Simulated assay, not measured.
Amino acid sequence: MTTTLPEGAAAAAQRRVPLWDNARFVCVTLVVIGHAIQRQISDSDNALIVYLFVYAWHMPAFAIISGYFSKSGAPNGRQMKKVLTDILLPYLIMETIWTSVQFLVEGKREFNPTQPSWTLWFLLALGIFRLILPYLALIRWPLFWAVALSIGAGYFDNIDTTFSLSRAIGILPFFVLGWKVREWGLVEKYRLMDAQAWWLRLAAVVVGAAWLVVVVAYLPFWRQIELRYWFFYDRSYVGIGEDQWWGGIVRLAVIALAVLLSACFLVLIPRGETWMTGFGQATMYIYLLHSFVLYPIRETGLLKDAHATNVWLLSMVFASIAISIALASPLVRRVFRPIIEPKPDWLFVDRDAGRTSKVDPTGSRRRG
């Protein structure tokens, strides 16, 4: 099945749109911030507030953006090879590096690529999305079925983190939503790439502020029920501690909240060129490399107990922004391109088909 895009959408796909690069950079920087402050949330209420506020929507927004730039037609040979070169091969390379690091630091002697290390789950999720989207596009109401799969998966304990399956199914609705937004031509129809009306931006701020107030007002309750695990989409309801039938309703509410907050986020993102636009073209470098920078800090326990203060919290937030900028620099991209953007021409019968594509797995157009 081949989807024909509206004329405006086809044109948008061919030119750089600062909105998407700005959004990608903010999303991936929030990923870094979330991972940087994670060790503080057990000892700091303010850290948990930031964590819950961000985790409610930042990965769903990332998935929506990735889905927007995905194609639902039957893949050709080149597109199938891109799954290997853009997703599977970088995943195996990074998983091997992580195994080596954990062996040297922790003495861990296990290489198990079926269980993705730390941040690598998203690469596998993107691969799964690419493989199943052509099939979803063949059936009626694909978004409905994606939501049904996400909710239904939570009732089965045997759908676990193997090959990132539980998380991939959990956030599938956001990826499909992004694809449907493009297919419906909503961005062009409502001129969403243009600067949004002041009242719409104000509404987005009010909604975001309301969510922040809810997080702060009920923080002891959120800590008690461990709300953060609902935002991971990687556990069954029983695994989270809810064995009641209404666990699926809670996940549906979490999905709806994430969509609402993601929409507010996209309304507030600058539409024009900004200082962060260029950095948004190096999303995968930031995402895949930041964990190595944070790993020593997390393993030393530096951010726990007495160091779980507001000063340390702010320090880690600003440090995360600096890390994102540094990892998106031309020098870092040049040094780490062989593992982030491998070119295994030797692997394929048609050697030209194995070359790195112009678009990375999140939809960002690569430089050079």
Rank of each mutant, 00 (worst) to 15 (best):
H58K: 02
T114S: 15
G77W: 08
E273R: 01
L327F: 04
L89C: 02
V267Y: 00
H35N: 14
W245E: 11
I49F: 13
N310V: 06
G127C: 00
E106K: 15
A253T: 13
V349W: 15
L252E: 07
Y237M: 13
F265I: 05
W245T: 00
G363Y: 08
G73F: 02
R15G: 04
R39L: 14
A306C: 00
R271N: 02
L303T: 01
F232P: 00
E299N: 06
V214W: 07
P60L: 05
G178K: 06
A256K: 08
L252T: 06
S262C: 04
C27L: 12
W346Q: 10
F348V: 07
R298T: 11
I339V: 11
Q79Y: 09
Q14D: 02
G368D: 13
L133W: 02
I249F: 05
S150F: 06
F292L: 09
P6N: 02
D45R: 12
M80T: 11
K81T: 09
T3H: 06
A322M: 11
S357K: 11
T300W: 13
R366F: 04
F69I: 03
Y287H: 09
K108Y: 15
S66D: 05
G247A: 06
L192I: 00
Y237Q: 07
L124S: 01
G239E: 05
R130F: 00
M316A: 13
V335F: 12
R355M: 11
D160L: 15
Y155F: 15
Q196K: 01
I269P: 07
V207I: 12
V267T: 06
W118C: 06
W246Y: 13
Q40D: 09
V26W: 03
D21V: 11
R365Q: 10
L138P: 03
Y295C: 03
L165Q: 00
E7F: 00
L303R: 01
L266F: 09
A10H: 01
E242F: 15
Y285L: 02
C27V: 08
L302G: 01
R271F: 03
Q196Y: 09
L314T: 01
A253M: 12
R333H: 07
A328I: 03
D243T: 08
F111Y: 14
L227G: 07
W246D: 03
A195Q: 14
T99A: 15
R334Y: 06
V176D: 04
I159G: 03
L124T: 01
A153G: 14
L268Y: 03
A306Y: 03
Q281T: 11
S315E: 08
